[in-house]
């Protein structure tokens, strides 16, 4: 059968960053981690990582300190809700646009 340009007849995705497109552009608010409060950042120990565990898009790293990949973070705010020490705040994206200008 003819497949012509594409290798696959159906829509499918495999695990990996960006298979759903650059979803960071969907974001209205950006989660920002306060490293003064963040447990692994403050204690310099591999502890907590609640944000990493709860992130539905897997864009938070399990590192000291944790980092967020804003290329794909959709701004769902789950990390900010779940952080036990309130280290993550949601900041309007417009703030960053102004700053970048």
């Amino acid at each position: 059968m003819k497949k012509e340009k594409f290798g696959c007849r159906i829509s499918h995705s495999e695990p990996g960053p960006g298979d759903g497109g650059r979803t960071g552009s969907w974001r209205v608010k950006r989660p920002v981690i306060d490293l003064e409060k963040c447990i692994p950042a403050k204690t310099k120990k591999a502890a907590c990582f609640t944000c990493w565990l709860f992130c539905p898009d897997g864009v938070i790293t399990k590192t000291i300190p944790p980092t967020i990949d804003y290329e794909y973070c959709k701004g769902c705010e789950i990390c900010a809700q779940e952080c036990p020490v309130g280290a993550i705040t949601m900041v309007e994206e417009t703030v960053f646009i102004t700053e970048e200008k």
Partner: peptide, 12 residues
């Protein structure tokens, strides 16, 4: 759009 490997995937 490109898939996870960077190959162009078919659209709808």
């Amino acid at each position: 759009r490109p898939d996870v490997r960077g190959d162009m995937a078919p659209g709808y």
